[in-house]
């Protein structure tokens, strides 16, 4: 079994009979995520036969493979050759994206609670949330859901103990030291601070998802009036 190797470098772990996880670290760091993006990029440029899907995350990459072509051990060996080439990968320059958000009220039902938890005003929560330049660590959960980090230390808050069954599309939430926008109405356990009128994922434009892995993002506070106006466009 290739799991739990004590050797240095990334850790390989079978996830299922047709998937393998590669961990570049056991903590969320920009370096680990950069390695995820490098390997993702390399596997895009130089695809490996019999690998049919990749799920990047903070510090890991899930590789889905055809079990008729690969055994876990052989695939690990092959992927280690890719790892040896990571330093030479040139990642594309990050795009800078601004996302308008209307905070509080029905759009951000958890804003007051988050503020109270940290003994600060809702205004301060908004100020902290909009002052950071976030990295898109990866897209996951649903189509176009970008995991952004890192949230200001003062705002770090656990997920809701039990997820909501319905979170409206466009909701902007926080969980742990991460933040993100729900592209679709889905269940979700993040604490909701506000909502954006932008469509995070749509099929009538070339880039289906507004955000891509590696992008840089800023949130910009807007009024209810601007929200209504932007939503009409």
């Amino acid at each position: 079994m290739p799991s739990k190797k004590s050797s240095k470098g990334p850790r390989f772990q079978p996830a299922s009979d047709q998937s393998l996880l590669i961990y570049f670290g056991e903590k969320i760091t920009r370096k680990a995520n950069e390695n995820v993006r490098r390997l993702l990029h390399l596997l895009g440029e130089d695809p490996l036969a019999g690998v049919h899907n990749l799920h990047p995350a903070y510090c890991s990459l899930l590789v889905k493979f055809d079990v008729r072509k690969w055994r876990q051990e052989a695939l690990e060996k092959e992927l280690r050759k890719y790892l040896a080439r990571l330093d030479k990968v040139n990642l594309p320059a990050p795009r800078e994206v601004e996302i308008p958000v209307c905070y509080g009220g029905e759009f951000g039902p958890d804003l007051e609670d988050v503020a109270a938890t940290h003994g600060m005003t809702p205004e301060r929560v908004i100020e902290l949330h909009t002052s950071a330049n976030y990295l898109v660590y990866f897209l996951g959960f649903t189509p176009g859901f970008a995991y952004l980090g890192e949230l200001a230390q003062e705002l770090v808050t656990p997920r809701l103990p039990s997820p909501r069954k319905r979170v409206p599309a466009g909701s902007v939430g926080i969980a742990g030291n991460q933040t993100g926008v729900y592209p679709f109405e889905t269940p979700g356990g993040w604490r909701l601070l506000g909502r954006t009128p932008l469509a995070m994922f749509r099929t009538d434009r070339e880039d289906l998802s507004l955000l891509s892995i590696g992008d840089h993002v800023r949130f910009v506070p807007i009024s209810r009036e601007s929200f209504a106006e932007l939503a009409r466009r």
Binding site: A15, L21, E26, A57, S60, L62, Y147
Partner: peptide, 18 residues
Amino acid sequence: GEMISEGVSLGAIQVAAG
């Protein structure tokens, strides 16, 4: 209940806080 999010495969059996 919580861990660092990672890729999940079809048929994964996850155990939430409850």
